[in-house]
């Protein structure tokens, strides 16, 4: 491979990672935009999502690397697994909000954030205790189709990941911009009190944000499995920290910002893994987080969060 080929290959890898981080970052951003809360449970909702997708696929007989499908059966199986995953994680997010976070609304200080850390820890350990510490093989039902771009290789799974991510992000953008509930959501993000007085059911808006954010995290978890062909109880932490960095980089609370940030972080991860050393990738990503927060806390596209004086 020439240097250019390497760069193209890393761009392909980076875009795939970026698509996954973007989906995860959207969940952080939706919730932060309304509640000004860093939802640490998001880290492991993503991880749970990857396991739900795994179980859904295995339940449909798609196991390990042997089952290869194509055409409508493939699309059907993936779609069912996708639905199961997003519905499960979305509902999980809503339940977490409804029973553990809503009682803390209006409580000042770090109580809500500490709760999300606790929830994240609970999810993490439930999976660890019930499924075990070993990495699990994630099915790969995609036919081994690939295209050569110079010396680089573009596989079907990458194209699939991009298509899923683009559809989801397009759908979310449409929802936020043009639907009634989406408008209510943006209004609540600007000023929850004013929105409430104008008749917005703030609680319903928040639940929607939790549902959508968690569903997208679940989708991200499924993509993780399809991309890496494994999953483990531990994958939520790194992906979560990167996705949060992506959300901050794009401007927290800002929906297009989260997508842009996700793609940038994915590319940085791919390129730094190639050019420096994978052992230091976390340090690099994290340094970006600190630098952005210190020098440009509003991110690339601007921060959107409730105006509290």
């Amino acid at each position: 491979m020439t240097a250019t080929d390497l760069l193209v290959q890393q761009a392909i890898n980076g875009l795939s990672l970026g698509a996954m981080y973007a989906l995860l970052a959207l969940g952080f951003t939706l919730v932060y935009g309304i509640l000004e809360l860093i939802n640490f449970s998001h880290f492991n909702i993503f991880m749970v999502g990857s396991f739900v997708a795994l179980m859904a696929l295995e339940a449909m007989g798609v196991v390990g690397q042997q089952t290869v499908m194509s055409g409508f059966p493939l699309v059907g199986v993936l779609f069912v697994a996708f639905l199961a995953t997003t519905m499960f994680t979305g509902t999980l997010g809503v339940l977490i909000y409804r029973f553990l976070l809503r009682p803390l609304r209006g409580v000042k200080g770090p109580a809500a954030m500490i709760t999300t850390i606790g929830v994240s820890y609970i999810l993490f350990n439930i999976v660890l205790l019930t499924i075990g510490a070993d990495a699990k093989n994630f099915p790969n039902p995609l036919p081994p189709i690939q295209w050569a771009i110079g010396g680089a290789v573009l596989r079907l799974r990458e194209v699939l990941i991009w298509v899923i991510a683009l559809l989801l992000m397009g759908g979310l953008t449409y929802f936020v911009q043009y639907t009634r509930l989406g408008k209510a959501m943006r209004a609540t993000a600007q000023d929850p009190e004013a929105a409430r007085m104008m008749g917005v059911e703030v609680d319903r808006v928040i639940m929607t944000a939790f549902f959508l954010g968690s569903a997208l995290a679940g989708a991200g978890g499924m993509i993780f499995g399809l991309y890496y062909n494994f999953t483990s109880f531990i994958v939520g932490f790194n992906a979560g920290l990167r996705a949060f960095t992506a959300a901050v980089l794009g401007g927290i609370g800002n929906v297009p910002g989260a997508m842009l940030g996700g793609v940038i972080i994915g590319l940085i991860e791919a390129v730094s893994g190639q050019m420096i050393a994978t052992g230091w990738t976390d340090v690099i990503i994290f340094s970006i987080l600190v630098l952005v927060l210190v020098f440009r806390p509003s991110g690339l596209l601007g921060r959107v969060a409730p105006n509290k004086s």
Partner: peptide, 20 residues
């Protein structure tokens, strides 16, 4: 004993809900 971290998580959540 192996579930200790699970218990940590539960402690965090329960304390925040009922005895901050």
């Amino acid at each position: 004993v192996e579930s200790i971290e699970l218990i940590f998580g539960i402690i965090l959540v329960v304390m925040m809900l009922f005895r901050r």
